[in-house]
Computed example of a mutant assay.
Amino acid sequence: MDFGLSTHLFHAERLGPGHLEAMAAEGFSAVEVFATRSHVDYHDAQVGRDLAAWCASAGVRLHSVHAPITEFLHGTTWGPPISTGTASAAQRARTIDECTRALALAEVAPYEHLVLHLGVPDEYAPPTGDNQRDAVLRTLEALIPVAERVGVRIAVEVIPNALSTARQLVRLIEDEELPHLGICLDVGHARLQGDVVDALETVAGYLVTTHLHDNRGRSDDHLVPFEGVIDWGELLIGFQKVGYDGTLLFELAAGADGAAATLRRAGAARRRMESLLGLDFAFSED
């Protein structure tokens, strides 16, 4: 089991080697790249080659890429959505193209998982004709062969909409016989939908990666763990009970004190988790 961090924390900035070095300095050994073109231009193969070199230099592993969900993201304000669940054939074709380009990064910067939203979270008021199960299935039908070709496994994420509860994602995989899909348990999202440990136990058989963040129980705050209402001691015991030994990956929003200060608090939260798990990492002594 190792700890990772999403570049979502820095999404308002152009990603560069300094971000990865700062992550490594706080003891995060894996990274998920948040694919918005204003943050990292995943259309450009040279950007992918640069990303691979930056990761190697910083000593971090490129664990995953978060599939495109919007044209841009400023703070909590979304631009036009890039949705897998739209009923519009033209918009769905665009989504498939954007996700295919994100998958193509793996040809020059190998990674394990493409984390994929099914539709749009409810709080972003999906337009009429979005979050359609049939549309999601058509999108997956197009993307799964591409992912297999570049050696990436798609991980569908628990997000706050009716398509993407823990139970619905398991049902999708089993009913549609999609064994190549895994699940990304986003624990903050799961907390907004009910009990986090129940969600963990529900997805355990398909769990391949995680998003760890906290909230106050009302909105998707993306707080540093231990700063909200989630019982992290209980949840970490749950990960051990289900036998999950993969990456525990933080997905955070920059606090009012800025991204750098949020990263330092994330490093402290990581150390606290290591203590609760009884782990002994080289980075644990700061």
Results as ranks from 00 to 15, higher is better:
L140N: 02
R138C: 03
I154L: 14
T7A: 07
A260F: 00
S83Q: 01
L212I: 01
A260Y: 03
A253Y: 11
D130L: 02
F28S: 05
V31S: 02
C55P: 01
G267C: 06
T209Q: 09
V152N: 09
I159M: 11
V31T: 12
A93H: 08
Q193W: 08
C99E: 11
I82A: 08
S164C: 14
L103P: 00
G16P: 04
D50G: 01
T202G: 00
H213Y: 04
A162S: 12
G18Q: 12
R94Y: 15
D134M: 07
L252S: 09
I230D: 01
T76W: 14
L116R: 05
H66K: 04
V136T: 11
L248H: 02
A199M: 06
A109E: 04
G151Q: 09
V150E: 03
A204H: 11
Q240S: 15
C55F: 11
A35D: 08
A89C: 00
S57Y: 03
K241A: 15
A35S: 14
L62A: 10
W54Q: 08
A268E: 15
A58M: 08
T139D: 05
L51N: 06
V65K: 01
Y42T: 08
I183V: 13
L137W: 08
G79K: 09
D195W: 07
C55V: 11
I159L: 10
W232N: 03
A56D: 15
H189T: 03
T84P: 01
V33W: 08
F250V: 05
G258R: 12
V187N: 06
G255W: 10
G233I: 02
V156N: 02
Y244N: 08
A254D: 07
A102I: 12
G27C: 07
E201S: 01
L172Q: 04
P225V: 08
L140R: 10
I96P: 02
M1G: 09
H39L: 08
R49N: 05
L103K: 05
A261N: 05
T128H: 10
L178Y: 01
V115D: 02
N131R: 05
R265P: 01
D130M: 11
D220C: 11
A56M: 06
A162D: 07
A135T: 04
F3S: 07
R271A: 10
A147D: 06
G48N: 06
S57N: 11
G238L: 09
I173H: 03
H66Q: 13
K241I: 07
A266S: 12
I159P: 03
